[in-house]
Amino acid sequence: MMLPVPPAMRASAAKSPPPMKTVVRRIKFESELDLAFGERVAERAYGQKLLSCIQCGTCSATCPLSHYMDYTPRKIIAMTREGFKDEVLNSLTIWLCASCYSCQVQCPRQIHITDVMYALKREAIARGFYPAHHPIPVLARSFYERVFAQGRNTESRLLITLYLRTNPLVMLREAFLGFHLWRKGRLSLKKESIAGRKDLRKMLNAVEHGKKEEPL
């Protein structure tokens, strides 16, 4: 079985010269770090012992999505521990985490890495630090909005919202697939909702405005 090869790595790309790189200064001063960040994240993630991490890299090696992450899980732990708050919260990694738990299962220090990822994700949301047009946060938000409004998710409308907010051109490409699914009865265009929408909204509001997690 063969995986589709990403466009950037196709043979054709090698014919054109690589883009000119700009010289960038990369140095991290201690004053730019938030030294207590690691401790607070650990606490938020049910008290995980980030300090025990030996940077062995098992988590990255076993993570099915680490290929696509800008910072691998191991790096996220190292950076969190050292206080690289901005880099960590702005990373793609925490959004790409599929919570498959492979890292947590294999970690020789039994650190609950997935819980840490989720703590970081929640923190990023609390601060509004997420890539606004990236499909994953957009999907999460759209999903929530739809459920908040209707009490239920309508797949077709969710997808449309997702494409419109991220990359509308993709919609055109996927339309063909969408048409076939609709024809086979796999994708309904009908809006789905529940009767007690008002009550649900009340509950969700209570949660949202109730105990707020403090930004770290």
């Binding site: 890299g57 090696a61 191991r74």
Partner: peptide
Amino acid sequence: IRVEDTLIGVV
């Protein structure tokens, strides 16, 4: 063998 080369920084 699937491993992260932590010194180079890539899987």
